[in-house]
Structure formats: structure tokens, C-alpha cells
């Protein structure tokens, strides 16, 4: 397909414009107007003085993941891998291990999220049957020097966690 090229000529100048002087004066009037208007009240200025003032976050802003805690402070996660199965980016790597308490049975030995792969869609949170992972900390993904540092581990995820009182495993456990 050949792109249609539309040729645009210069607009013809009238006598006043072709002298440039009138246009020069108009330009000076414009900059002058901006100067005085902005000097007395800064209405047109869109600049946000960032570190001092911050824009409010959207209500839908999620931030980094976190792993919730049981009442005794241990992770709620049972390493069922629903989140890693559901993850469209494939950024969650879980290694499970046996929990000494047979009532809990399974806990993650390691729980790693590659923030470079993560798209922060929140599917992991929706897939989680235990209210263990949440994507609501509001914390920004930190800048890193290497790809390895962008992988957050179990300890980091738990450090943002808080206690969840959601009932596990249905009504009449």
C-alpha cells in the first residue's frame, strides 16, 4: 500500500506579515502577557514541585505484593501455586516444603516474584484461595542495579504483610 502524501505549502503572507515587524511585535506582546500574568498569579504553571508536593494516587494503584500473616505471625501462604499458575507473566516461583504442623501441612520454602516480569495485574490476588497474597501495599517497585536484585523473596513479601482474619477452607472448618 502506498501511503498518500499530502503536500502542505506555506500559508501565503499578507503585507503586514511579510514585513515581520508586526509579527515580531505580536510575539513580544504574547510573551509579555505571559510574563506579567504568571508573575502575579501562577495559574498557567503546570509544574508540580515533586518531592515537596505529590500528586494523589489513583484508587486503583496497587504497588508491590505482600504476603499476609496468620494470627501467630506465620505466613498464610500454603504454596498451592494458584498464583504462579494464573500469573500471565510467569513471574512467581514457589518452592513448597512440609510444615511441621499437619493441620497446615504445606508452606512455601521460597516465594520469589520477579518484578521485572510482573505486570501488577493482580490476578495472583484473585486466584489466592487463602487471602495470602495481596497486591495492595502501595509501595513502588524499587530501582535496582541488576536483574537479580529485582527478584523479591519471601522475607521481603512478609515484611509488608499484616494479619488477615479471613477464614481458611470454607465455613465450618
Amino acid at each position: 500500500m502506498v501511503a498518500k502524501v499530502k503536500k502542505v505549502g506555506l500559508p501565503p503572507l499578507n503585507v503586514a506579515e511579510s514585513l515581520y515587524v508586526t509579527e515580531l511585535v505580536r510575539g513580544l506582546i504574547t510573551t509579555n502577557r505571559h510574563f506579567w500574568r504568571n508573575w502575579f498569579r501562577r495559574k498557567d504553571t503546570a509544574t508540580l514541585e515533586y518531592p515537596d508536593k505529590r500528586r494523589p494516587y489513583s484508587a486503583r494503584w496497587r504497588g508491590l505484593h505482600r504476603l499476609m500473616l496468620r494470627e501467630n505471625g506465620t505466613p498464610r501462604c500454603v504454596a498451592c501455586m494458584m498464583c504462579s499458575t494464573h500469573c500471565p507473566a510467569g513471574c512467581i516461583t514457589i518452592v513448597a516444603r512440609e510444615h511441621p504442623d499437619p493441620a497446615i501441612e504445606k508452606v512455601p520454602a521460597s516465594f520469589e516474584i520477579d518484578l521485572l516480569k510482573c505486570i501488577f495485574c493482580g490476578f495472583c490476588e484473585e486466584a489466592c484461595p487463602c487471602d495470602a497474597i495481596r497486591v495492595d501495599s502501595g509501595v513502588h517497585a524499587p530501582p535496582v542495579y541488576g536483574r537479580d536484585e529485582a527478584i523479591i523473596d519471601l522475607e521481603d513479601l512478609l515484611s509488608r504483610g499484616s494479619q488477615s482474619t479471613a477464614k481458611q477452607g470454607g465455613r465450618n472448618l
Binding site: 500454603v78 504454596a79 498451592c80 494458584m82 501441612e105 504445606k106 484461595p129 487463602c130 477452607g169 470454607g170
Partner: peptide, 11 residues
């Protein structure tokens, strides 16, 4: 049945 499918290897 405990319905503990998340931690069940058979799931």
C-alpha cells in the same frame, strides 16, 4: 472431606 485442594497434591 476437608476440601483442602490448595495443599493437596492430587488437585
Amino acid at each position: 472431606h476437608p476440601v483442602d485442594c490448595p495443599i493437596c497434591d492430587q488437585a
